[in-house]
Design a binder for these strands. Sequence first.
RNA 1: GGCGCGUUCGUCUAAUGGCUAGGACGUCAGGUUCUCAUCCUGGUAAUACGGGUUCGAUUCCCGUACGCGCUACCA
Length: 494
Amino acid sequence: MAQKRIRVRAAPSPTGYMHIGNLRTYIYDVLLAKQNGGDFILRIEDTDQARFVPDATESFCRTLKRLGIIPNEGVWLSEDGQSLVQRGDFGPYIQSERKAKHQAYAQKLLDMDKAYFCFCTQERLDQMRLMQEAAHQPTGYDGLCRKIDPAEAKRRVEAGEPSVIRLKLPKEGSVTVNDAIRGKVTFDWKLIDDQVIIKHDGMATYHLAAMADDHDMEITHILRGEEWLSSAPKHMFIYEAFGWELPVFAHLPLLLNPDRTKLSKRQGDVSVESYLDKGYLPESLFNFLALCGWNPSDKQEIYTVDELSPLFELSKINKSGAIFNLEKLNWLNNHYLRQRPVEDYVSMVLPFLPADEKDLDFKRRIALLFRERLNLPSEISALSSFMFQTSLDYSNVPLTWKDHPKEEAIERLKTVKSWIESMNESIVEDAKKLEETIKNKIQDNGWGNGDTLWPLRVTLSAQEKSPSPFELMAAYGKERSIKRIDEAIVYLLK
RNA sequence: GGCGCGUUCGUCUAAUGGCUAGGACGUCAGGUUCUCAUCCUGGUAAUACGGGUUCGAUUCCCGUACGCGCUACCA
């Protein structure tokens, strides 16, 4: 028998930004699809008109694009990136456009006596809940309209009475969900509410819409957050009512705040876009998120998508939630920043250097100088700001080495300056050669490295901590280096 | 409250019914070095608790505690 083609989907609601936890789900989707040569589909779940945010879908696509995750089917950006297109044979891929299909499915459920019209008002529902809570009883719909004769219900609907459609769930026995991560999970039917599947406005709720579409689009694996586990029985009920073959359900553990609550806005950033904007690289985010809750049982920490996809196994995903560990993400980002091709790296860092400095080559050298120190491109601005100052303030860090006298520092600086003056620009701009040359001369003079290099380094940086004087001079170039030395000498002579 | 899910170093995790429970991030110490960063070496630190089953349990079972999720005409 031929293996069924693996099809997975990302199904965001256009209600705002892309959540970092959802991105992890999409990463697993991609891994699974890639591993099996399957399809990764983007479907938009916009059945809640009240929460709809204009441009949220476009922005979602743009973020996916920045991450390098391109669905091969479903909703996507048009050529110019300004509007949406839909590609594939299973469309439409926007749920509100599938309203009629959803209603037809609801009608079938009605016909099969697996659903019923409900005429209860919101007031009655609210009041019922209040009373149930006060009596410490389980909350839920009491099934009042369940007993209405279908023919009469139909009459009332046709007469224009407002109604919704609810699932007619079994009230006894139990149901077992087979989860790819957790195994068998059993629920009592009597504790599960007769869920609304068609709302007042005729739009389906998630429960019907997502399942109907997943079936119609031949989705084989439903990867979603753990928060859906409790409603999985309703979803199975719908599949089974229609006699459809069940997909694989995999309920992923949640991503958590440092205090172990569900990852939220209050305790830091949760929007993927803002991480991207801060300079976290797609490959860092991918590597980090993929390994947050899953691990290929290896000691390796650095992985590309292509390395990870053959190793991916749903059943090896952890069952417990994982705290979003920013420090490790930073470490990974530092790694990938250093891994990027030079010009790539430079272009990411350049925007964080002063715009009024017109010497591009100078800025480029500075970008490279701080490469191994950056977790994020933006960090370069604080680290390198002294390099752009016309003159430095030497009052905070001593220019003299330990208890060596000021006169000695002046002498050393004057001598080093004369060496630099006699050197070719090309030597000065080569930190390695410069170091070799100067260290040889220091040795020839019988000086110590510390008593020469400390004053020199502080001269160039006015910082307690900084890159070496050789690297600094190489970045400054001959002219700027000499100017700094002159100023330090003047300062010391005062 | 009810139902469900979960619990290995501070964090992400590996492992097995049986070696000193492994790796990474962080942190600490040492080395390199003019300082810092990098780099190298080393250290620190965990099977929630209580019962079983077993020759032996972190692993299997039960209970307790704690955490989380769900309990909408939101997804």
